[in-house]
């Protein structure tokens, strides 16, 4: 299982990368692996306002559908349309292939997310 340093991780297996006031959000390697072959990604609407824990999108395999929860509050400013054509990108590299970019005002929630080592420990307990 791959975990990258420098990202924030949620208990629902999403990652967040912060660049200025933009947050890139995606799902972790653990998440893509437990879902199996990903066949469809439902992306959020541009300009939609999300609170922490709101459903940002849905990632689907043949036999499962998993909601992606927003780990941070903000406005969706960009979505990864490449996933529309090729959802398998999430299997290939879930860290390069983010799902959406949110513009945020308040980053205090980041304190509640895990860092790479914390997330690794969390996943080993989940198994």
């Amino acid at each position: 299982m791959k975990v990258l340093d420098g990202l924030y991780y949620s208990k629902e297996h999403e990652w967040v990368k912060i660049t200025g006031n933009k947050a890139y959000v995606g799902i972790t390697d653990y998440a893509q692996e437990s879902l199996g072959e990903i066949v469809f990604v439902e992306l959020p609407e541009i300009a939609s306002q999300l609170n922490v824990g709101d459903v940002l999108g849905v990632v689907e395999s043949v036999k499962a559908a998993s909601d992606v929860y927003s780990p941070i509050a903000g406005t969706v400013i960009e979505v990864n349309e490449a996933l529309d054509d090729d959802p398998a990108l999430l299997n290939e590299d879930p860290y390069v292939n983010w799902i959406a970019v949110l513009e945020f005002a308040d980053d205090s929630i980041l304190d509640e997310l895990m860092d790479a080592s914390g997330y690794e420990a969390y996943c080993s307990k989940e198994e």
Partner: peptide, 13 residues
Amino acid sequence: TIQTREQHIRREK
């Protein structure tokens, strides 16, 4: 196909 729409996977959703 596209079975994730259906009750046996998505249940109440």
